[in-house]
Write a protein that binds this DNA or RNA. Structure first.
Lengths: 329, 329
DNA sequence: TTGAAAGCGCTACCAA
DNA sequence: TTGGTAGCGCTTTCAA
């Protein structure tokens, strides 16, 4: 390992001087600057971030906490965060919490122990207490919060749009799937859809689901059609559930979208590759990740941020699990 | 921030003693141990990993380098790595390289600068030179290497199985999709399938593709059916490409699997949710991640590892894009 | 414009 | 069984 002392020796100056040229701080003569840089190149020196971090009490590390990267919505978020953070030279300390409070606390702890300068969290634990006495900025992602800066999509509006679109397109007996109670964005969608549906003249019923996992999704789907065989429109709590519903409907021989319309939520990448391709409410996941990163960096730099709560727009993606708008609608 | 000095003061002993109880090293009287632990609880002290890392020249950090977490195969790998690493108290410094040599080097550098004790890399860059003069263990994942420890699935065997299965099930004019040239696992699959097909009596043609991206996949699919409209069996280079092929085939009104059989590769989670669900060659991604992590931890601990190259088994998942085995086969 | 030296929080050696 | 202290690699006063 080559240290700053080696560079100092090689270039015949003190470590203090080397440090000055590396950090571009304080005066240093152009000639000695060149000597030092030459030595740096020579020895292929690169500074030990750990030592830096120890002295300055701040690193170039960001903690990123996700519920589960295995859920297809999150890789996009993560990528947005990473790509933006990369620009500022920040690196990611990464963990999945599985929405488990203990794991969450564990990760938070090690983030702190490793001197991260900021945290982005996309978990949905009720107990925000973990974040209470953190001395570094935290941005919540895919989650609203009045107490903390946050970046999230307009779930309520998304739910409303989904409901309106499916009604406009002629579904009369709609099933509204209510996502897990502890996932706040899922509840927002639900509320939005519920309001819109209530104001419409169609029949609808609500079915609760308790997870977003692949394995469970197919189970809900079967249950749905067993319980409500004549439903002609499903508002799913996300694209995974929508996919499972679509799959099951096709298995039962239903024509999509003629017999049954389906609208998902999220617009995960594979939704467009389904057949028929899935109509859905798009959340701009990648951009949300970027926004969260941008916001966090500003907070880290103690810049004045006017907008601590960034709501991202949501759009209806009209693919092939929905019909044309009903002219008589 | 509460430091070891605070704990020492609070418990009326020296920092050396506190360190000893924290690390369970050297003698310490039970009574003083209790006093110290009480102080630790009291002050909610947790050791500064950065200081530790600086002194010991080793951290509890692992570098994980992936091509692109947005590709649905990788979240599984990442999760396997994380879950296994968690057990040993290791945390992940995480980055996506996009198979870009510069990004890869960048990440490798910062991994080193942050004192990671080991690296898991799933990138497919030819230039392994980056890894040459690393003084810490590296495990390659989803990639073979004679020079370095590695964990990978038996791609060649997978390709062979896929070819044999599609032939056994009666396809006569098979299209073999050849994945990107620089992705070695893709080439292994291709070679395996090519061999098996060559030894069979069916017609087949090869079509090259140059990426695994969602956006490109649909393009290949269209091109495939434009060029070979009468193909009755497709061996795709992975499940994403297979999904696009399936999508396009259905769009063209083909019956699956009657008119056309399709076999993918990877068995990404959403493959079972397609309709018809996708027959594919399964790589045990999660387990591969775990294996890689286990191997790396052994290497870090300088345990004697007999097996530095771990080849994972691959299995045919018989779903609904393939027919029954042809009795006249 | 430069260098000496203190000190970031911790571990481990040596002495008591 | 305990404590003093050097030192990990770096940055930043302070003095020269």
């Amino acid at each position: 390992m080559v240290t700053i002392r080696d560079v100092a020796k090689e270039s015949g100056v003190s470590v203090a001087t080397v440090s000055r040229v590396l950090n571009q701080t304080g005066y240093v003569h152009e000639d000695t600057r060149k000597k030092v840089m030459a030595a740096v190149d020579n020895l292929k020196y690169s500074p030990n971030e750990v030592a830096r971090s120890l002295y300055k009490k701040k690193s170039k590390l960001i903690g990123l906490l996700l519920p589960d990267i295995t859920n297809p919505f999150f890789p996009q978020l993560a990528r947005g965060v990473e790509d933006e953070m990369q620009k500022g030279g920040y690196r990611l300390l990464f963990g999945n919490s599985d929405e488990n409070a203990e794991k969450e606390m564990d990760y938070l702890n090690t983030f702190i122990q490793n001197n991260v300068v900021g945290i982005i969290s996309a978990t949905n634990n009720k107990t925000k207490t973990n974040y209470k006495d953190l001395s570094i900025p935290v941005v919540f992602l895919d989650r609203t919060s009045s107490d903390y800066p946050s970046v999230y999509a307009d779930g309520k509006e998304g739910g409303r749009i989904a409901a309106e679109e499916i009604v406009k397109r002629g579904s009369k007996r709609i099933t509204l799937l209510k996502g897990p109670a502890h996932i706040q964005p899922a509840q927002d969608r639900f509320q939005g859809a519920l309001e819109a549906l209530s104001q419409s003249t169609v029949d609808f019923h609500v079915m609760s689901t308790t997870s977003f996992a692949f394995e469970d999704a197919e189970k809900w789907a079967k249950e749905l059609f067993a319980t409500y065989p004549d439903t002609d429109g499903v508002l799913a709590s996300n694209d995974i559930v929508a996919t499972a519903v679509l799959h099951e409907a096709l298995r039962l021989g239903k024509s999509i979208p003629e017999d049954l319309q389906i609208i998902g939520f999220d617009d995960i990448p594979q939704s467009s590759l389904l057949f028929p391709s899935l109509s859905t409410i798009r959340q701009p996941a990648y951009e949300m990740g970027k926004e969260a990163a941008t916001l966090l960096v500003k907070l880290i730099n103690k810049e004045n941020v006017q907008q601590q709560h960034i709501q991202m727009p949501v759009t209806f993606i009209d693919r092939n699990t929905t019909r044309e708008v009903d002219a008589h609608g």
